[in-house]
Computed example of a mutant assay.
Amino acid sequence: MDDQTRTELEAAAFRALRAHLMDKRADVQNIDMMNLAGFCRNCLSRWYQEAANARGIEMSKEDAREIFYGMSYDDWKSQHQTEASAEQKTAFTKSFAENVGPKD
C-alpha cells in the first residue's frame, strides 16, 4: 500500500471514530472513556491540535475542540456531560497521570 492510500484510510478511520463518538455515542462520558481506555474526545482534539501545530498551523486548544466537537466545548458539556461521581474523579486522576501527564 502506498503512503497516500494509507494516509487516506487512516483519515477515514479517524472520521468514523469521531462520528461514532459524537453522533452515535454522545452518551458516553469523556471521564469514563479516559478511565477505561486512557483517552477521550479531548485527547483526540489535542492530538489534532498537536498535528496541526507540528505542520506550522496555528491552532489553540479551544479551536481544536470546536473543530472536533462541532461546537464550543462549553456547549458540548451543557448538552451531554453529566456530573462525575467521586469514584470517577479518583479514577480519572490516576488515568490522566498515567496517560497524559501532569495537569497544567
Rank of each mutant, 00 (worst) to 15 (best):
R15A: 14
M1R: 09
L21P: 06
T5N: 11
N35M: 03
D75P: 03
A51H: 04
R18Y: 02
Y48G: 00
C40Y: 01
K77C: 11
F68E: 08
E10P: 01
C43H: 03
R6W: 02
R6A: 12
E87G: 12
C43R: 05
I67G: 01
E8I: 02
M22Y: 01
A64Q: 00
N53D: 07
M1D: 13
A91F: 04
I31A: 02
E87C: 06
R46K: 06
G101N: 10
Q79P: 01
T7Y: 04
A64T: 10
D74L: 08
S60M: 03
T90L: 07
M33D: 14
I57F: 07
A16S: 15
A91M: 04
I67A: 12
A84E: 13
E10C: 07
F96C: 05
M59E: 15
S95E: 13
N53P: 01
M22H: 04
M34Y: 02
P102K: 13
T82L: 13
F68I: 05
T90Q: 08
D2I: 03
Q29H: 12
A51K: 12
G70V: 04
A37W: 14
A19G: 14
W76T: 15
A16K: 14
R65L: 05
G56V: 10
Q79G: 04
Q79H: 08
W76K: 10
S85W: 02
A16C: 11
E87P: 00
A26C: 12
F39K: 13
T5P: 02
A97S: 13
L17G: 09
D63A: 06
I67L: 06
Q4C: 11
Q4Y: 11
N99A: 08
T5V: 08
F92S: 08
I57R: 13
F68S: 06
E83L: 04
K61W: 11
G101D: 13
D104Y: 12
Q49S: 05
M33V: 01
D2G: 11
L36W: 07
Q81G: 03
L21T: 00
I31S: 00
S45P: 03
C43W: 09
A52F: 00
A37C: 10
D2P: 02
Q49C: 06
A19V: 06
G101R: 06
D104I: 12
L21W: 03
L9K: 15
A86R: 06
R15L: 15
R65S: 02
Q88M: 05
N99H: 12
K77M: 07
E62K: 14
M1G: 14
A84P: 07
N42C: 03
A64D: 07
W76S: 11
F96A: 10
Q49F: 00
A12E: 10
R18H: 08
W76H: 12
A52D: 00
R18S: 05
F92A: 11
S78P: 03
A11P: 03
